[in-house]
Design a protein around this nucleic acid. Structure first.
Length: 485
RNA sequence: GGCGGCGUACCCAAGUGGCUAAGGGAGAGGUCUGCAAAACCUUUAUGCAGCGGUUCAAAUCCGCUCGCCGCCUCCA
């Protein structure tokens, strides 16, 4: 397997610290507000990586943290007029509501900063003792000049950064780029006792403390959004390696942003959509598919149109599943070989390897989805050829099995076609119940039996105007929610 | 200003040295159908922003130009 390592700016063979095991840490969220679709992307991307590594046979230990104490939380608490820890609890709950809906699995551990104050203090103390940290009043800063490798992750030169620094110079710091390991608390702010007086952790130190505690001093994968590369991960790397004297992380992985009108989606620009706003209009699986149809490092332009395309793709998938199931239920036994048989056999033979090759290459989910739809097309071609017999059934069972092996890795394609249709009924707000639709289908059937085509067509039209499409099959008339347009 | 990235068909999007440049969406035509839908077939890039270079061979490597974006401050 190869992964793109931000540290070296290139794809590298994934060689774990301990053979067969992967320790993986992803930066979660600061729980001070609802999550937007950008948070969803990061969560989903690392969720898929974790799933695929497991699929590949690694024993994965996955840690994803919550930042439950920082300035934004304190400010939010003032704004909402509730305690800071209530803010954190509230938005942690909301995080789970959204992420559960999106099919983002729980990490093996989901540590919180406030639960690791003792560890944090120990590390800050260690850094001070080693001469990397210095105390000013009740604050403790990390002295970047003492860490010669500072800048190696984000490819920045300390002197150049100072020259173009837009940060306000804090006179108490030895160097403007020095960052807080521990912050003295102001009156009325949350605080914990420490050797430097009452205070709270700096932003970066919690990840050092929690990752080292749960994964050891050197671990395999550390991930997060690309905007965390600097300063968060750069600082985290510096203080961790300064503290342990060892390499902190082997592979740094970063996901790209979601854009709106080609601009980064962000809180400050105000151009964001919350996850629940989107889930009001689209099924979670659509969102997941949409986010996985582009490589994780590339930017994704967010739009309703793209989500509709993702929805249409999923519908194509489930339509084919239905066709396959229908065939397996009622296929005639007398064998009827077709010329399409060979083509399907060939695609089936190489499918899983192609899927793995795609995912092995830096988690290329977009290519993997392409492989899946290649198989879908071949299955449809085969079914169109009207095959029959044992062999035909075996081939289609194989196809179904292959698809159901790849689905769990991406955590999509896992519904029954009926569930997919139900989901569309909800998100498209179809103004009929299933019973009403069935009644109309019976009405139409009676008209058709009389060859009263105008009545039959009127029923079709009435349903179609409200988003329901009828499909006349040998076994009767089926219906489905229309997705395209 | 420094660093990094991107520019592939009407749209989205894989592909980073060598088979016919994946896949999805939209459009057009066709097969099937009472009519449809779905599915399938055909069609939409002798060309991958432009120019030049390296090479037997480049969308893919190098240089320059144009356009767009990100990070350098909190940010997934």
């Amino acid at each position: 397997m190869r992964v793109y390592n931000t540290l070296h700016g290139k794809k590298e063979e994934l060689v774990p610290v301990s053979p067969g095991r992967i320790g993986m840490y992803a930066c979660g969220v600061t729980v001070y507000d609802l999550c937007h679709i950008g948070h969803a992307r990061s969560a989903i991307v690392f969720d898929v990586m974790r799933r695929y590594l497991g699929f590949r046979g690694f024993q994965v230990k996955y840690i994803r943290n919550f930042t439950d104490i920082d300035d934004k939380i304190i400010n939010r608490a003032k704004k909402e007029g509730i305690a800071w820890d209530e803010v954190a609890e509230k938005y942690t709950r909301e995080y789970y509501v959204d992420m559960d809906r999106l099919g983002v699995g729980r990490a093996d551990r989901e540590p919180k900063a406030t639960e690791h104050i003792a560890e944090i203090i120990a590390i800050v103390k260690g850094l001070v003792d080693k001469g990397f940290g210095y105390v000013v009043g009740g604050d403790v800063y990390f002295e970047v000049k003492r860490f010669p490798d500072y800048g190696k992750l984000s490819k920045r030169d300390l002197d150049e950064m100072l020259a173009g620094a837009r940060v306000e110079v804090d006179e108490r710091k030895k160097n403007p780029m020095d960052f807080a390991l521990w912050k003295a608390s102001k009156e009325g702010e949350p605080s914990w006792d420490s050797p430097w007086g009452p205070g709270r952790p700096g932003w970066h130190i919690e990840c050092t403390a929690m990752s080292i505690k749960h994964l050891g001093e050197t671990f395999d994968i550390h991930g997060g959004g690309a905007d965390l590369i600097f300063p968060h991960h750069e600082n985290e790397l510096a203080q961790s390696e300064a503290f342990t004297g060892k390499q902190f992380v082997k592979y740094w992985l970063h996901n790209g942003f979601i854009t709106i009108d080609r601009e980064k989606m962000s809180k400050s620009l105000g151009n964001f959509f919350t996850i629940r706003e989107i889930l009001d209009k689209f099924d979670p699986e659509v969102v997941r598919f949409f986010l996985l149809s582009t490589h994780y490092r590339s930017p994704i332009e967010f739009s309703d149109e793209s989500l509709r395309e993702a929805e249409a793709s999923l519908d194509r998938y489930y339509t084919t599943v239905t066709r396959t199931e229908d065939f397996l239920k009622e296929a005639p036994e007398k064998p009827k070989p077709t010329t399409e048989e060979k083509a399907l056999e060939e695609v089936l033979a190489v499918f899983m390897n192609k899927f793995k090759e795609a995912m092995d290459d830096d988690f290329n989910t977009a290519l993997a989805l392409g492989n899946i739809f290649e198989l879908i097309r071949e299955v449809n071609r085969y079914l169109d050829a009207k095959p029959a017999g044992r062999k035909a059934k075996d081939l289609l069972v194989t196809a179904r099995d292959l698809l159901s092996q790849s689905g769990p890795v991406l955590n999509i394609f896992e519904k029954q076609p009926e569930e997919w249709n139900d989901a569309l009924m909800r998100t498209k707000r179809i103004p009929f119940t299933k019973e009403e639709i069935l009644r109309k289908i019976i009405q139409r059937r009676e008209a058709r039996e009389r060859k009263d085509w105008s009545t039959a067509d009127a029923v079709r039209k009435e349903l179609e105007d409200r988003g329901i499409i009828l499909e006349d099959k040998k076994s009767g008339t089926a219906w489905k929610v229309r997705v395209s347009k």
